[in-house]
Amino acid sequence: MSREREKTTVSIEEYEKVQTVLNALMDQLASQLPNESANRIKEIYEFRSSILGETDRGAVLMAAAFLDDKLKGLIEKRLVQDRKVRKRVFDFNGALGTFSSRIDFAYLIGVIPKNAQKDLHTIRNIRNQFAHHAAPLSYDDEKVKGLCNNLVFHGVLETADAGSKFRRSVMGLLTHVTLAFESTEAIEAHPDFSIPDRAGAYQIVSKVFTDVTGAEYPLKHEHESVGAR
């Protein structure tokens, strides 16, 4: 009888050993990246570990908040670097003050693809299910399960359970947003418009008005100072 058939359970200690090996592999991978990139990858991996010990509700709320924050950072990097205007736009009552508005805006400015936009909205809807229902709730709830089954970023078979699809989709989206952040550049602010001298046009209009009516152009005071009359 093979070892594979003999072994039907895995101990907690063995799981911890697997995690230790995976952590070492992740550290090895991160060490080959620039410091900022490595830190972002490590942050994602550490976040994954942190939600594994959470309840379904806790994991969903944490994941949505983390994705929202990372999406905000991605959008901020793409926008004109005007701190005062950005703060106003991202305030709660601002144009980009909600997770929903940030998802759509990120898609419209081309920093995330359509399928990421759809999955992010699905995760937002899953979050709302947990946030707006005080009664006990889990991934096995029919509505939650249906939403999880709509996710595509998980990369697993459709037969996988809802919780696995959710967690893996979150990790896939976080990885995608992180990679997008690396390649995104800020839009340059457009220079101020140079206001043209309209004196020539005024003189023509003023002359025509006087020639036709015999009266002084009524808006003359808007174009000539008192001393110039």
Rank of each mutant, 00 (worst) to 15 (best):
V60A: 09
C148H: 06
K77I: 11
G94I: 00
E36D: 12
M26V: 13
R78N: 06
T55H: 01
L147R: 00
D56R: 03
H132P: 01
N149K: 09
A59C: 09
E43Q: 12
R124K: 12
N125R: 12
K118C: 14
L52C: 04
N128E: 11
D27E: 08
D68I: 09
Y107L: 06
D140R: 08
E142H: 12
R48I: 11
G146S: 12
G146H: 03
K87Y: 09
Q129W: 07
S37C: 09
R124F: 14
N115E: 11
N35E: 14
M62D: 08
L151S: 02
V60S: 04
V60Y: 00
T122H: 10
Y107D: 13
Y45R: 13
R102K: 02
G53H: 07
G53C: 04
T98K: 00
I123T: 06
R40A: 10
L61K: 07
F47L: 01
C148Y: 07
D91K: 11
L147A: 02
P34K: 01
D91W: 06
F130I: 05
D119P: 07
D27Q: 05
S50N: 10
L147Y: 02
M26F: 09
M62L: 13
K118N: 15
E46Y: 03
H132Q: 03
R127F: 02
K70H: 14
K72H: 04
D141Q: 10
A59I: 08
K70S: 13
A24I: 10
A135G: 07
V80T: 06
I109T: 00
N125M: 10
A135H: 04
K42R: 04
T98Y: 00
D82L: 14
K114N: 12
K42A: 00
G110N: 10
I112N: 05
L147G: 01
S37I: 13
D104G: 03
G58M: 08
C148E: 11
Y45P: 05
V111Y: 03
R88D: 14
D91N: 06
L71T: 12
L74F: 15
F99S: 00
H121D: 07
A131I: 05
E76V: 09
L96P: 01
L29Y: 12
K70R: 13
A30Y: 01
Q28P: 04
A38I: 05
R127T: 04
V85R: 10
G146R: 02
N39K: 13
I75H: 08
